[in-house]
Amino acid sequence: MIADEVSRLTGRAVAETRRLSGGDTAAAFAVRLDDGGELFAKSTSPSMPGAAAAEAASLRWLAEPGVVAVPEVFGDGDHCLVTEHVPEGAPTAETAAELGRGLARLHYAGAPAFGSPPPGGPADAWIGLAPMRNEPEDDWPTFYARHRVQPYVRRAVDEGTLSSESGKILDRVCEDVAELAGPAEPPSRLHGDLWSGNVLWGRDRAWLIDPAAHGGHRETDLAMLHLFGCPQLDRVIAGYEEVHPLADGWRSRIPLHQLFPLLVHAVLFGSGFGSQAVQAARRALAG
Rank of each mutant, 00 (worst) to 15 (best):
P187M: 01
A41R: 04
Y152P: 00
Y144C: 04
S164Y: 08
E16N: 10
G197W: 03
P261E: 04
E38Q: 14
C80N: 10
C80D: 13
A63N: 10
R154D: 15
R146H: 09
T17I: 12
P245D: 04
E185F: 06
W195D: 05
W250V: 10
D221S: 05
L194F: 02
E98F: 02
A26P: 09
Q232D: 14
I169V: 15
V82F: 07
T92K: 01
S47G: 11
K168I: 13
T44G: 11
S275E: 14
G272D: 14
G202Q: 01
R282P: 02
R205H: 10
P65S: 08
E72F: 06
Q279T: 15
G215F: 03
V177H: 00
L262W: 00
C230V: 12
L256Y: 01
A266D: 01
R251D: 10
P91S: 03
A277T: 07
L103G: 04
G115N: 01
R172H: 08
G160R: 10
G120K: 06
L99S: 04
D34H: 12
K42A: 13
H214L: 12
A266I: 04
I127D: 07
Q276I: 03
A181K: 00
A96E: 06
A184L: 09
R253P: 05
G249S: 09
A181L: 09
K42W: 08
P119W: 10
W126V: 04
P117D: 11
V278I: 13
F273I: 02
M224E: 00
E64C: 03
T142R: 11
T161K: 12
M1H: 13
